[in-house]
């Protein structure tokens, strides 16, 4: 039995301790906003916050998460109105949208640690987030906009 806190709620999971958090979230907790894109830490689609820092859910073993605080896209803001989400809407960032939960979680973690990131800091923090639709230019603009507001 693994106990952890997901989006502010205590959860007890009787699952294989080797299971990556990604599948526990998607298949057992119904939190499908966190996406599977590669399973090997290459795409960033599965990004969540682990005790406030960005982490790849496909690489987090449930067995290592006892007592940890996890935030997913669904829990970033109670009304989906985090400043990063607002900037994403204002800049019309998403195309297909599949990478965007991960992009937003990555950007929110970046801004929490670095409130006014430079282009180079954005590149460094977001390099692991692939977008096959090519929304990078707007991701960058939206991060800058969120940093302003």
């Amino acid at each position: 039995m693994i106990e952890l806190v997901v989006n502010g709620e205590a959860r007890r999971l009787d699952l294989d301790p080797d299971m990556p958090l990604l599948w526990a979230l998607r298949d057992h907790l119904g939190l499908t906003g966190t996406k599977y894109g590669c399973g090997i830490a290459q795409c960033g689609a599965c990004t969540v916050h682990l005790d406030g820092a960005a982490a790849r859910a496909c690489q987090l073993r449930l067995g290592d998460l006892a007592g940890k605080r996890i935030t997913t896209i669904e829990g970033l803001h109670p009304a989906g109105d985090h400043k990063v989400q607002r900037a994403w809407v204002a800049q019309q960032v998403p195309q297909c949208g599949f990478c965007q939960s991960g992009q937003i979680m990555g950007a929110a973690a970046l801004l929490a640690a670095t409130p006014k990131p430079s282009d180079a800091e954005i590149d460094a923090a977001m390099a692991g987030h692939l977008c096959r639709c090519g929304t990078y230019q707007r991701v960058r603009a939206a991060i800058h906009a969120a940093a302003q507001g």
């Binding site: 939190l31 499908t32 906003g33 966190t34 996406k35 997913t72 896209i73 669904e74 989906g80 989400q85 994403w88 809407v89 019309q92 960032v93 998403p94 949208g97 599949f98 965007q100 939960s101 937003i104």
Partner: peptide
């Protein structure tokens, strides 16, 4: 579809 896609709510 953009608001739902910023909240993880769009169903793929």
């Amino acid at each position: 579809d953009v608001p739902a896609k910023t909240r993880g709510a769009a169903v793929f």
